[in-house]
Structure formats: structure tokens, C-alpha cells
């Protein structure tokens, strides 16, 4: 499906050096609709740095260029969930500037991440995993075609991981694209592309 569509994101010859060590060199790739791309590498290989460069959060300190052609959703290590707000408020007033969601949409999204009944509980009463889940509810609400996910499975239980994998597959099947880092292999029937930072190529 991907070969006729325009890319959502393109990296042109990205090189990054940190503390005198070359993390990766001349990395060029395109992310097309339907791509499910997993960035691989051991701790300290530069996975988070790469995904922050792709998102546009790191704008200096690397060589090369990133072209972004679409709205993107980025989920980083920190959840961005305010402890003083309820999950409902966290989503309704989210600082990423997405659309105004109705109460119903938010309740549906929270129910899908297993937070049914927690909509109006202050978030400081929730566990770390539940904080992550509030954040993941954004994936059910978002209209962004491109998702950049940095370790989305952290602190998520087994069934949560399965549901998230199914959601990722639905998103790419619907013409979206996902770029993610994770230490676990995805258990999906969809074709996963791998970008190994150690070998520097897409397998």
C-alpha cells in the first residue's frame, strides 16, 4: 500500500554525536502511511534522542535534516499527566493543542484504556501505570496520522500491551504510521520494519 503514497516523515542523513561518541551516522529513511517502524538498540544507543529529533524537540546539536509533512503525536518518557487534574481534565485541556473532545469521546477513550470509573478521580490518586494509561488514551482520541512513541509499553500490564499492539496495527492499517522504540518485540501479525541504531539500517 505504501509505495504510491507520499511520505509522512523523512530523515535526511542524520548524524548524532554525544559526549565525543558517535551514536549514529548518516541515517536516512522515510516513513510512509502504513509503516510500523520500531527503532532498536541497547540502552544509550540514542533511541530517545532520535525520536526527539524526529519530533522536532531537538533542533540543534545534530547533523542532517528532518522533513515533517503531517501533524504528529509524540509520547515521551514523561507522561505529561498533571497530578492535580482528573484524567478527564487532563485530556480535555491537554497542552498538545488537539481538538476539543466531547465528554462522551473522553469517557470512551478512558474506558478503552481501562480507566472506566476513574474519569473524575484526581490523578494523584492513580498509580504510575494508570498515569501512563491516561496518556495512552490520547492515542484513541488523536487524529494525527503519525505517532512517535518512546517506550509506550513502560509500566503497562500484559493485557494493556496486547490492546496497545492491536491499536497500533489498526492505526497503520487505516493509513497512519507509527515510529516507536521498545525493548520488547512486537507480537503482531503486521509487517514491522526495524531500524537498528547499531547497524544503522532498516532490516
Amino acid at each position: 500500500m505504501g509505495h504510491v503514497s507520499a511520505p509522512l516523515l523523512a530523515a535526511h542523513a542524520i548524524s548524532l554525536e554525544r559526549g565525543g561518541r558517535e551514536l549514529f551516522q548518516d541515517l536516512s529513511f522515510e516513513v510512509l502511511p502504513g509503516h510500523l517502524l520500531q527503532i532498536e538498540g541497547p540502552n544509550g544507543a540514542g533511541k530517545t534522542s532520535l525520536i526527539r529529533i524526529l519530533a522536532g524537540l531537538s533542533r540543534y546539536g545534530f547533523d542532517g535534516r528532518v522533513s515533517r509533512y503531517t501533524a504528529l503525536l509524540y509520547l515521551g518518557h514523561q507522561s505529561g499527566v498533571k497530578a492535580l487534574l482528573t484524567p478527564r481534565e487532563n485530556l480535555a485541556w491537554h497542552v498538545a493543542g488537539e481538538g476539543q473532545y466531547s465528554d462522551e469521546q473522553i469517557e470512551t477513550a478512558l474506558a478503552k484504556v481501562g480507566l472506566y470509573g476513574f474519569e473524575d478521580v484526581p490523578s494523584h490518586a492513580l498509580s504510575a501505570g494508570q498515569h501512563r494509561r491516561v496518556n495512552l488514551a490520547r492515542l484513541y482520541l488523536s487524529q494525527c496520522p503519525l505517532w512517535l512513541l518512546d517506550e509506550p509499553f513502560t509500566a503497562i500490564d500484559k493485557t494493556g500491551v496486547l490492546e496497545l499492539e492491536a491499536l497500533l496495527v489498526r492505526h497503520v492499517e487505516a493509513g497512519g504510521a507509527v515510529v516507536m522504540t521498545s525493548h520488547q518485540a512486537l507480537q503482531v501479525t503486521y509487517e514491522v520494519r526495524y531500524l537498528s541504531l547499531v547497524e544503522g539500517l532498516i532490516l
Binding site: 522536532g56 515521551g76 514523561q78 507522561s79 505529561g80 497530578a83 497542552v95 498538545a96 493543542g97
Partner: peptide
């Protein structure tokens, strides 16, 4: 506090 919990990153990525 927005810096510490990651909200600031999200604000920077907002289309507005």
C-alpha cells in the same frame, strides 16, 4: 511543573 512532567514538550509540539 510542566517541564518536570513533560507537559512542556507537548506544548512545544502543539500546532498553535
Amino acid at each position: 511543573s510542566d517541564f518536570e512532567d513533560g507537559s512542556l514538550e507537548q506544548l512545544l509540539l502543539a500546532p498553535q
